[in-house]
Amino acid sequence: MKLVRPVLLNLITWSLVLLISFPLLWMIVTSLKPQTELFRIPPTWVPETVTFEHYWRLLSETPFLRYFRNSVVLASTTTVFVVGLGTLGAYSLVRFRYRGRETLAMLVLFTYLLPSVVLIIPLYLMMVSLGLSNTLFSLILAHTTFALPYALWLLRSFMEGIPVDLENAALVDGASRMGAFRDVIFPQLLPGIISTALFTFILSWNEYLYALVLVNSDAVSPLTTGVMSMLISAFNIEWSLLMAASVMMSLPLIVVFAFLQSYLTSGFGAGGVKG
């Protein structure tokens, strides 16, 4: 009896875990199957032949690499911009006293919850009138609308976790406010900054709506709209190719998961879900 319970528990848990991750496993399996094996009924749950031809085609015959490069530029620039602004802003919101500070913090939280569709129409008009439509820059600006409140909120919460006395000690030891920030606060905040940067990068990497509305040239499309257009434009939907694209598109995420997962979990604690 003593042994049955844990075994049963493991069995149930792992079946559920496998069920949940089945779509992802299926994505990988499909991307490795030759086209001919794809449309068998019933499907082969384990591929009979493993092939990397779809990955090869994806990289050599489709604009995938260009989309990928666009996404890298877009997500990195947004991240650097937003985390840079957010770090200074969070320092100001948490450690300085001035009028309107509380209101500002609440405003940040409010915008953090704002639906994108409310902003998309005016932003579209703004980009058109500034002559910025169909540029990566317009997407960077647009991504700021959700990434900046998010990063500020996260960083603010990380900043609150740093003992005030550390900064005070630095001040007494002869540092200026910015000196204390550089010598003491920044090193302490670094894990929080990394966590925020990862979240921001993933948000920006995955974003679809703004890319759909603000960019319709293939040259500047990021992965999200780019890969979707491969689905729509193809006469015959090549599922293996799309699954290969999906796997490739998730590559940065897989890297983060493999090496930096603790930063993602700590970001959750900070992101407004403290109970």
Binding site: N168, A169, S176
Partner: peptide, 17 residues
């Protein structure tokens, strides 16, 4: 500024970096 007062302080939490 604190740094210009020629004082040193030991904090309850020690506040070691």
């Amino acid at each position: 500024a604190p740094g210009k007062r020629d004082i040193a302080m030991v904090f309850q939490s020690y506040a070691l970096y």
